[in-house]
Simulated scan of single mutants.
Amino acid sequence: MQDLKAELTASLDEAEWQWLLPHLSRDSLIVVTPELNIVDVGVAIANNNVPLVQNWISQELIHKPSLNQMADWQNNLNKKFQALIVQPFVLIQEPATTNQNSP
């Protein structure tokens, strides 16, 4: 399992929204919310950990892109994501944003 996690960590990359469009058309994009570690999600999917993945789905921590998200991202084709391929899926996660309102 450590080997898989190391392999997935090494293959984690940055991708622009426009590069992800072919995966969207294949319905293979999965959005990972910032609360989760994208590599941990990849490991769970690769290991077919159904109870854990189902739990994340039920909590909406992983999901298909919503129509609102896709519309926002279409307006910014250069928007960057962390991306991880776990066949047949492509996991994406928006980079953490810094809070502009903090003192």
Rank of each mutant, 00 (worst) to 15 (best):
A44K: 00
N55G: 15
N49A: 12
S58G: 14
S11W: 05
E94K: 08
I92N: 00
E7S: 08
Q2S: 11
V50R: 13
N78G: 05
L91D: 00
R26C: 10
E14A: 09
P34F: 12
L4Y: 01
F89G: 00
L8K: 00
L67N: 15
T98M: 09
A44N: 02
L36R: 00
I57H: 14
A6V: 08
T98Y: 07
L36H: 05
L20G: 01
F89V: 01
L36K: 03
S28H: 06
E35Q: 15
Q87C: 04
I38T: 01
D40Y: 04
Q82I: 02
L77R: 09
Q82V: 02
V31H: 02
Q69L: 15
V86D: 00
L67Q: 14
Q2R: 10
L77C: 03
W56N: 03
Q87P: 12
V41Y: 02
M1F: 02
Q59A: 15
N55H: 15
H23T: 07
Q87H: 11
W19R: 08
N76D: 14
P34M: 11
Q82D: 05
A83S: 03
Q93L: 05
N68A: 15
W19N: 10
Q87E: 10
W56I: 07
L91N: 01
N55A: 15
N76E: 11
N48R: 13
R26K: 11
L4C: 05
L12T: 04
L8H: 00
N55I: 11
K5N: 08
Q2Y: 08
N68E: 13
W19L: 06
N48L: 13
L91F: 01
L77Y: 07
L29M: 08
I62V: 14
K79V: 08
K64E: 10
V90G: 00
E16N: 08
V32R: 02
I85F: 05
E60Y: 11
P34C: 13
P103L: 14
V90I: 04
A46N: 05
T98N: 13
Q87N: 10
